[in-house]
């Protein structure tokens, strides 16, 4: 089985038969820039299923962001494997990794990271433009997502005219736009007030259910942990706990 950078598709049609979206095996990432090597990720084994809403938590420097970067293919591990639908992305070339991210992953960053020279709708449609989708499809998807995010009236504005909460909603819409297999969100609520955080989390939870997209967060935020259905705790680059949480519908809405 191989990943095609051109079509963004995996050449084998096994996708429907497997449940694990991501499978991490003995993953390590060691930084050797200092005299003493730093093991940011130290022998992690994890599996993520389709439709998960998972929070990776832990103190600063425990390896959360490094793990997300490795899973997203924007950093290379020192050793180990990251299997996305049985394909080891650590073996992909830089160019293949770009296509892999384009067609499979949505990213949400702590500081929103919208493209400042593009309008809200252009930011949301950016990834789909990169995928050369049809104009009608792009327009319809933008309309749907911005309406779902409650910012349909802001389509023509540039990011600097939006509040932090609104910008992060645009970032979520951008991440979801191309219907990725999973979304990696690195501290997405860190720069938001509690009202914006709640709104955003509810929106993401709702879209997670509707679109069956796997959400994986790294966070310090208790509110995110409260919404997560699975919490993975890291310390010193290792998983120290991995807990499934069951929420009532009312809890989830709060």
């Amino acid at each position: 089985m191989q990943f095609s950078g051109v079509t963004g598709e995996w050449n084998n049609s096994f996708k429907t038969n497997v449940m694990s979206v991501i499978e991490i095996q003995q993953l390590t990432k060691t930084y050797r820039e200092t005299l003493v090597p730093v093991h940011a990720v130290n022998g992690i084994d994890l599996k993520f299923e389709k439709g998960e809403f998972t929070a990776i938590v832990g103190p600063s420097g425990c390896g959360k962001t490094t793990l997300l970067n490795l899973m997203g293919g924007i950093d290379r591990p020192t050793s180990g494997q990251i299997l996305v639908e049985k394909v080891d992305i650590t073996q992909l070339t830089a160019s293949q990794l770009v296509d892999f991210r384009l067609y499979n992953i949505g990213f949400i960053f702590q500081s929103f990271n919208l493209i400042p020279v593009l309008t809200v709708e252009e930011n949301v449609g950016f990834v789909m433009e990169l995928q050369h989708r049809q104009r009608e499809e792009i327009t319809a998807r933008i309309q749907y997502l911005l309406t779902a995010m409650g910012i349909a009236e802001k389509t023509k504005l540039r990011p600097k005219y939006l509040s932090g909460g609104q910008q992060q909603r645009v970032a979520v819409a951008r991440a979801l736009a191309a219907k990725p297999k999973f979304i990696l969100a690195d501290e997405p609520t860190a720069n938001l007030d509690s009202k914006s955080t709640n709104t955003l989390l509810n929106l993401m939870a709702s879209l997670n259910e509707k679109e069956q997209v796997t959400f994986i967060f790294s966070t310090h935020d208790q509110r995110v942990m409260d919404k997560a259905r699975r919490i993975i705790t890291l310390e010193d680059g290792k998983v120290i706990s991995d807990t499934s949480v069951k929420h009532s519908h009312a809890e989830a809405q709060n």
């Binding site: 160019s95 384009l102 493209i115 950016f126 990834v127 951008r174």
Partner: peptide, 9 residues
Amino acid sequence: AVMIAIGMH
């Protein structure tokens, strides 16, 4: 970096 991360070559 963000552009590359989200899929731009």
